[in-house]
Amino acid sequence: MFRDAALVAAKDLRLEARSRVAFNQIAPLALVILLLFAFALDPARGVLARAAPGLFWVAVLLCALFAVQRAFAIESGDGRSDALRLSGLDPAGIFLGKVAAIALELAALEVLLGLGVAVLYDASFGGWVLLVATGASATAAIAAAGTLYGVLAAGLRVRETLLPLLLLPVLAPVLIGSTRAFEAAFSGVPADGWPWLGLLTLFALVYLVAGALAFGSLLEDM
């Protein structure tokens, strides 16, 4: 299973590196979202700095939608979904591979957004351990839930519009938890953030296990 996951993740990342969709389109979009918030909220009143954790994760969620759609767009058309079903790959391995590839893309995006938040919103970072742990757990949760709902929507004609409708409500706990944990880290009181990190880790584990178990059946309808 893990060998298949590594194979799928390497393939997806190579395809992404060749097409440069994440680099040329999704990353600039993330920065544009940060800029728009900076224009909409007055930096002089300190609103931006206070709202920075929430705005950061809203930007991550919106970009995650494109990353998930992209992960399944490369499998649709020209007989690739049939080839994937006939490949002999373990469906759980395919799921974990897709999760890993999306998570790595999102992690790179989060580093970029972090720099953007520091520069544009004048946010000060503290509690690095909590920040990194929250980033890892939330990213895994978003990638796992995104991959599960991504394959569900991939078999439908209205997938472009249906995926955000399905996924964003599901990811509301991740948005809340990661925002609260980041607020605690930003404010220099990391102890307040650890329970939220626990929630995020639990969410990620539930979706990783559920996805690995259900992906094979969902792949049949892709």
């Binding site: 194979l7 393939k11 190579r14 395809l15 060749r18 097409s19 490369i74 058309g77 020209d78 007989g79 690739r80 049939d82 080839a83 079903r85 006939l86 490949s87 002999g88």
Partner: peptide, 26 residues
């Protein structure tokens, strides 16, 4: 499925991978 090979109307190939990379992956 792992024991059959289906050549349909579609190619089943990844357009952004090379010929060799496609073969190595599958």
């Amino acid at each position: 499925r792992a024991h059959v090979g289906l050549l349909g109307h579609a190619s089943g190939l990844y357009g952004d991978l090379t010929v060799e990379e496609n073969l190595r992956f599958w």
